[in-house]
Nucleic acid binder design. Structure first.
Length: 591
RNA sequence: GGAGGUGUAGCGUAGCGGUUUAACGCGCCGGCCUGUCAAGCCGGAGAUCGCGGGUUCAAAUCCCGUCUCCUCCGCCA
């Protein structure tokens, strides 16, 4: 049993005791980071979330106190009262903010003893993530993690302050809501009161925020938890947080403007400067030049179109692809001509993951042109390829021939892989870009129908509305994504605010009238009662945090994240439940 | 659903058929030490080598299966 605080009052945080407090009596409370016993003198580093301060125990302050200090171990929780003194000549520690002083202990209370922790509480540990997650409460004690949690608080606070200053109201929307077709798999929650029926956890508050616009709230935001039952990635968790906003009586420009102001303040928290006016790029240009709708603009290696140069080639794979409506494009890995064959084979394996059938290459070496395809190409064709690709001696040209979507994802991803592996991406460079002029729909091969590229509530641009029937695939939308360094920070759109138009879009998505009524009837009906033009945007707070916090794992910015199998090693969730619980819900498990 | 990687004291690694009684660093425990802050010196405890099966005279080491964690593809309006 530990001692109690009783009348003790914490006067200082560990990291905030300075030479200003010299000669003062202070009381700190925290964890024992480290005890250094020199026989005649004992040092103890005491840590709280603000930092570390050194406490000194001398024999002259009494045997009882000294013996107690001797019994301290790592992670004991203590309260210490003592006098702040400057450290003796030559013993200042410039590494610590509190390194000029130390606290000469007069009283020590052990508030709680501790077992030796399974992971060490310090920044640079190599401990596996499984162990860290199981003992997450210890992992979060590490200063690096503590700082990230503090940073996350700063970001959400800054968001609230900025949006409040701009007239937004924070409004909560339901967590228990209705399952919707379109989109990710829903997490379902059975209803005991309504056996056989289920709520769904929201994939986003999309429809509710639109209803709030119908409700006349005009400017809404929420730091909203969202749930998607899909497989995880380094930057994807099944529950994540969006900064979700919606405004009435605005156009695209106004949403983007208010957003840029928010970004400026949020990134300032991480000492990252956002340009006053973020540049814009059309979806088509992004796909053409970078093979991605979230281009990383920190380095070049752009995709170059070789279709014209090879359309009449004897090399059938190239000319045939062009004549059947596909593309031949390439990227230039500058200085990569001497890459070993195994590396190039690795590139080919990699593009095959993105459905490319192969990877053609030309290595422009000092003495020769090394390429398995050169013999099929005329000298003129080779020259044209080199010219289009701005190639010179020492370069490695990597070429994919396929339909446009495959070429884009194969080369777009290869571009990123090569850049990462060869350190072509500069550190601490932040390239923001708005991607605009998205198509409203994209073709879904699996389902053989059009699917919403953004979501089904996105408005088409005014001049394309008449093409919804005749040529839906060519319709552009009022959608916009904010991209930073190849990461989609957030996306939004101006929404449809009209019953008829919304029905038309649903129909283009092959959502039957019955399904429209059943799934979205309440939204369509709401539109009939006077709906303001509205639009908004949502940001992935966790991904934003990864950038501001300079970490590669989304798990580092979430206090209690899930593993890749969507489980929690800490709580052991998910778990089987009592038969009785299932019975109440009218659910039986098929085994 | 698929591909790849991973698993050896509390933590991180080495060992990759027999000279090993499984080694090293950190941590832990004990002793010495009055100025350390990656303290130092001396001593010590701690591992059925993820799990199951197989091959072999002999398996941490080879083979098969399985599980965990990580990265990626599919999926993520």
């Amino acid at each position: 049993m530990g001692e109690t605080i009783k009348d003790l009052k914490r006067t200082h945080l560990c990291g905030e005791v300075t030479i200003e407090d010299n000669e003062n009596k202070v009381t700190i409370m925290g964890w024992v980071q480290k005890r250094r016993d020199h026989g005649g003198v004992i040092f103890a580093d005491i840590r709280d979330r603000s930092g570390i301060v050194q406490v000194v125990f001398n024999p002259d302050s009494g045997k009882e106190l000294f013996d107690k200090a001797d019994s301290l171990r790592s992670e004991y929780v203590v309260a210490i009262t003592g006098k702040v003194e400057p450290r003796p000549e030559g013993n200042v520690n410039p590494e610590l903010p509190t390194g000029e002083i130390e606290i000469k202990a007069e009283e020590l209370r052990v508030l709680d003893a501790a077992e030796t922790p399974p992971i060490q509480i310090e920044d640079n540990i190599d401990t596996g993530e499984d162990v860290r997650l199981k003992y997450r409460y210890l992992d979060l004690r590490r200063p690096k993690m503590t700082k990230l949690m503090g940073l996350r608080h700063q970001i959400t606070k800054t968001t609230r302050d900025y949006l409040d200053n701009n007239g937004f109201w924070e409004i909560e929307t339901p967590i228990l809501t209705k399952s919707s077709p379109e989109g990710a798999r829903d997490y379902l929650v059975p209803s005991r009161v309504n056996p056989g029926q289920f709520f769904a956890l929201p994939q986003s508050p999309q429809i509710f925020k639109q209803l709030l616009m119908v409700s006349g709230m005009e400017k809404y935001f929420q730091i909203a938890r969202c749930f998607r039952d899909e497989d995880l990635r380094a930057n994807r968790q099944p529950e994540f947080t969006q900064i979700d906003m919606e405004m009435s009586f605005v156009n695209q420009e106004e949403v983007m403007e208010i957003t840029e102001g928010l970004m400026k303040e949020l990134f300032a928290v991480g000492n990252i400067e956002v340009p006053a006016k973020i540049k814009r790029m059309s979806y088509q240009e992004a796909m053409d030049r970078f093979g991605s709708d979230k281009p990383d603009l920190r380095f070049a290696m752009e995709l170059k179109d070789l279709s014209e140069a090879v359309k009449d080639s004897d090399f059938n794979i190239f000319s045939g692809t062009v004549s059947s409506g596909g593309q031949v494009k390439g990227i230039n890995f500058k200085g990569g001509a001497d890459s070993p064959r195994s590396t190039i084979d690795g590139f080919e394996e990699y593009v095959k993951m993105f459905k490319a059938k192969g990877l053609a290459w030309m290595a422009l070496r000092e003495d020769e042109l090394k390429s398995p395809i050169a013999k099929f190409l005329s000298d003129q064709e080779i020259e044209d390829i080199k010219e289009v690709m701005d190639a010179e001696t020492g370069d490695l040209l990597l070429i994919v021939a396929d339909k446009a979507s495959v070429v884009a994802s194969a080369l777009g991803n290869l571009r990123l892989k090569i850049a990462r592996e060869n350190d072509l991406i500069p550190e601490e460079v932040y390239e923001f870009v708005w991607i605009v002029d998205f198509p409203l729909f994209e073709y879904d091969e699996n389902e053989d129908r059009l699917a919403a590229l953004h979501h089904p509530f996105t408005a088409p641009i005014d001049s394309d509305i008449e093409k919804l029937d005749s040529d839906p695939a060519s319709v552009k939308s009022k959608a916009y994504d904010l991209v930073l360094n190849g990461e989609e920070l957030g996306g939004g759109s101006i929404r449809i605010n009209n019953h008829k138009l919304q029905e038309k879009v649903f129909s283009a998505l092959s959502i039957s009238e019955e399904e429209q009524q059943e799934k979205f009837g309440y939204l369509l009906e709401a539109f009939d009662y006077g709906t303001p033009p509205h639009g908004g945007i949502a940001f992935g707070l966790d991904r934003l945090m990864m950038i501001v916090g300079r970490t590669d794992s989304i798990r580092d910015v979430i206090a209690f994240p899930k593993t890749q199998k969507a489980t929690s090693p800490l709580t052991n969730a998910p778990s089987v439940v009592d038969k009785k619980q299932l019975q109440e819900l009218g659910i039986s498990i098929r085994s």
